[in-house]
Design a protein around this nucleic acid. Structure first.
Lengths: 341, 341
DNA sequence: GCTTAGCACTCTTTGGCGGTGAGTGCTAAC
DNA sequence: GTTAGCACTCACCGCCAAAGAGTGCTAAGC
């Protein structure tokens, strides 16, 4: 009774797959038809009672069918994780990613849009972290009388420019020399390896333009962590298409949460080292998302993920397709990054 | 009976302001109390019947109070437009705008966030158009063996970089010379005045690097219109806080529309030359937004608006505060732009 | 000992029904 | 032109009964 034998597994799976399709509780009669095990609804009822006792199913009320619990989904997802496949048609709907050279934000934004429109759930994409990128060039471009615009280029494209106020006049030729000098000293370093010591050296060498270099250094330290925390969210309103969010009181908290990027930068941060990871309902540390599941994947080189993407949908989610889709897009982005570097 | 005399105006105004606060139909008794005109509910009823006949009010059903029609709101808004004021506290909640030098997109995004969080409606901000900006510099930065990253700096900050493939090897010094040459030739021109003829001259002069310049020219022509059409939307889920969107069937179409930037770039495009303009309910060309009103403003120099921002809320909107807020933020952005240029 | 037919039981859903209350329009008097 | 009085309309609410879905239990069968 207490063991999860083959038949129980089959029944659990059938309940889950039926429920994912219909969004309704599943009854014993339906299952008897669907499963063709040659057993009667009564037997299925016994098995379902056992599955409920084990915590994999639950009943919304006495006279309803069964619904999977988060624990039931967990068992199912762990089993189905490896089988997830896309049809060629589905793959085709994921267009080529925007190259990272157009800007990491652009790439992430486009990926989020694709993911949301293909899956009809909400999507979250964290752009590639910039701290491990290699510094290539800095250009100081005169701007007004005392200000310069600093543009940093890395091996994966250009960062946004930063306006620095030098508080004194400056000569375009001096700026060019400064640009070349700083670039030469920092080129090839990972951004997060540009330490204070290294910057101090540069500042020392550029004694004649200390202020610009100091400002630049300060900016680097403040700017990089900030960019990392950005995430792009798209398709939030898609959750309103789901029957479980037809009641505004369940939908509203989730939609409001989807406006808070911080929640999702947290979520995508805790990758736990796995390529694809799934958070089901109450497993989520954020209480507002207890009615949702998150299917997430990291992308980047195998040994060092640099970004992450995720789908957020109801716990009653088409896990198979979503897992495959997330995995496939993560793979595409990884390749696009590989090409750029 | 058919003339809109002072008392009718006062009653219409009272109905609208009460309804904006409570979201419920307004009855004659409530008004008699509120208005202190020294007239009885019966008189007010007569007036309201007249206002209904004139098309300014309507009744949801026989035994309910009156509700303003779009036409009623229009009259009210045109009257209230000039009186709209913010308290110092409300002004204080609008933090200083992000300077455009951080990137026009950044500025617009931050403005959208502010607007949404202060008003509790949805906000839309179109970043400053870039086509009238003045070209300052272009820098070609070597990137791999045959590619360069082109970074354009304008008088209002840096644009995103663009990767150009030259198909042949190149020398850093040559690139520097090319950067200087092209910059010298284009500096001070408005981006939309960089015509094919002008570019042809440059290409001619840079005969030894034609391909890079051609690619750059092609990019300028494709890139600029695209950037213009971007808008940033924030606070979409805020409309779920409004009583009229408690039914998911009314909320869903609007929320889905709020995911489509195109709709709003259209909307902000049709400024009709006024500094602040308002679209009420069915006045909106987009049918999905017939339950909503849009309060929009342009920003930029007086004679040439370069961007726009808007609030989208239910037709039952706090027009007074929203108009003042939109006008004030537009003013702040205009100033911020003025400082940068 | 597992399976299953039969059946009573539970609980949601739906639709009908009368009471209540808010607000109106009309009429007649001021 | 204003207003008191009053009948009327209609949404809303709570109640109740019928229907339907699905269950758990029991007892019989293999």
């Amino acid at each position: 009774m207490r063991v999860l034998d083959g038949r129980k597994t089959a029944i659990l799976r059938a309940v889950i797959e039926d429920h994912i399709q219909t969004a309704d509780p599943v009854g014993s009669e339906t299952l008897a038809h669907r499963l063709r095990l040659g057993v009667s609804p009564a037997t299925i009822r016994n098995e379902m009672a056992a599955l409920e006792e084990m915590g994999y199913l639950s009943q919304p009320h006495t006279s309803a069918g069964r619904v999977p619990t988060d624990r039931g989904y967990r068992l199912y997802v762990d089993a189905v994780l490896m089988e997830a496949r896309l049809t060629p048609q589905e793959r085709a709907r994921v267009t080529r990613p925007v190259p990272v050279a157009e800007g990491p934000g652009r790439m992430a934004e486009a990926a989020a849009r694709t993911l949301a429109s293909v899956t009809e759930y909400a999507s979250v994409v964290a752009p590639p972290r910039t701290d491990h990128l290699l510094f290539k060039h800095v250009h100081f471009i005169p701007f007004g009388s005392t200000r310069v615009m600093a543009v940093i280029v890395t091996n994966a494209g250009v960062t946004e420019g930063k306006m620095l106020d030098l508080g004194e006049g400056l000569d375009p030729d001096d700026l060019d020399r400064l640009s070349r000098m700083v670039s030469r000293r920092l080129e090839g370093h990972r951004l997060d390896e540009i330490t204070d010591a290294l910057l101090a050296e540069v500042v020392h060498e550029a004694a004649w333009q200390q202020r610009a270099v100091r400002e630049l250094a300060a900016w680097l330290h403040r700017y990089l962590p900030m960019v990392q925390r950005r995430v792009f969210i798209d398709g939030a309103a898609n959750i309103l298409k789901q029957p479980e969010f037809q009641d505004i009181r369940t939908a509203q908290p989730v939609l409001l949460a989807l406006q808070q990027e911080e929640i999702f930068s947290d979520l995508l941060g805790g990758s736990s080292g796995r390529a694809v990871w799934i958070t089901i309902g109450t497993e989520n540390p954020h209480e507002v998302l207890h009615a949702c599941s998150v299917v997430a994947a990291t992308y980047g080189p195998h040994d060092m993920p640099v970004g992450a993407l995720a789908i957020l949908g109801p716990t009653r989610m088409k896990y198979g397709k979503v897992i495959a889709m997330v995995r496939y897009l993560a793979h595409s982005l990884s390749q696009a990054l590989g090409d750029a570097v």
